[in-house]
């Protein structure tokens, strides 16, 4: 099968899976069949049926409504976290690659120090110190992920610094900040895009993990991690409590993976 066809399949599969999650997010913003915190003592742990598509939990809350509402936090944390990481990583990576020498050494020592600890551990410590809240989760995850982007930018910048067009710009006396952001940055888009997509997927996993441990999105707001954590005691009697939130997480992460594969194969095809 040729590369173009494989690439197209990745795109179709990725867009389909992400489309489902996006539909959940959009519908959840404007409408849910029941209130996400409305309890119904007469309908506890109901299996999926016409009234409750995804069943109900131990407090009689509608799982479908909670899944619709949780999508907004998952998307918010992953996009906002990646944005924070991207801004920090861009500034640090470009500066390290452009100035080199002592600047590079200091930035790389800092970023390696962050990277040598498991990311989830650092994020947990940060949230434990500053208190569990949505914004602290975003900041903590952004800080943990920034070195990944900084590395991509740094190596890309070092590579570009030897190119004649950068020498030409230096001869023309283009100021360093403009050189970094107008001359170098647009040339690194092809490298940073797959890192951003992978970052979105990882960020979602981290957020779910933190919520699962009770340090992420706080109740009564719905999040997939918290839903899974609450459901584990009822796993054998009400498996739907696990299945549906997990499926949406899998769709989102797999969708992002397929899109990143599509970007990778397209770039490879383009370079051929």
């Amino acid at each position: 099968m040729n590369l173009a066809r494989i690439s197209k399949r990745y795109l179709i599969m990725g867009m389909t899976l992400l489309g489902i999650v996006l539909a959940f997010f959009l519908i959840g913003l404007i409408w849910t069949p029941y209130g996400i915190n409305d309890t119904d003592a007469a309908a506890k742990l109901l299996a999926p049926c016409a009234d409750h598509l995804f069943g109900t939990d131990n407090m009689g809350r509608d799982v479908f409504s909670r899944c619709l509402a949780a999508a907004r936090y998952t998307l918010l944390v992953s996009f906002a976290g990646v944005a924070v990481a991207l801004v920090l990583g861009t500034v640090a990576g470009l500066a390290a690659g452009y100035f080199g020498g002592i600047t590079d050494k200091i930035i790389m020592i800092l970023s390696n120090s962050v990277m040598c600890f498991p990311g989830i551990l650092l994020a947990l410590v940060a949230v434990a110190v500053f208190g569990p809240s949505l914004y602290n989760v975003i900041w903590a995850l952004g800080l943990v992920f920034a070195p990944t982007f900084a590395r991509v930018y740094r190596s890309g910048t070092i590579e570009l610094m030897t190119r004649d067009f950068i020498l030409q710009s230096k001869v023309m006396k283009v100021p360093p900040v403009r050189l970094m952001y107008v001359h170098i940055l647009p040339n690194l888009m092809a490298q940073i895009l797959p890192a951003v997509i992978t970052g979105l997927a990882n960020m979602t996993l981290f957020e779910s993990g933190m919520s699962y441990l009770g340090l992420g999105v706080q109740p009564p707001a719905a999040s997939y991690g918290k839903m899974l954590s609450d459901a584990q005691s009822y796993m054998t009697v009400a498996p739907w409590l696990i299945i549906f939130p997990t499926l949406i997480l899998v769709f989102y992460i797999l969708g992002l993976y397929f899109i990143s594969e599509w970007v990778r194969t397209s770039v490879r095809g383009g370079s051929q």
Binding site: F165, V171, M172, N187
Partner: peptide, 18 residues
């Protein structure tokens, strides 16, 4: 006045993004 330069490699002499 200012000095200007033309470099060797035509492939890398211009910024591909612009």
């Amino acid at each position: 006045r200012k000095l200007a330069a033309v470099f060797q490699d035509p492939v890398s002499s211009l910024n591909p993004a612009h």
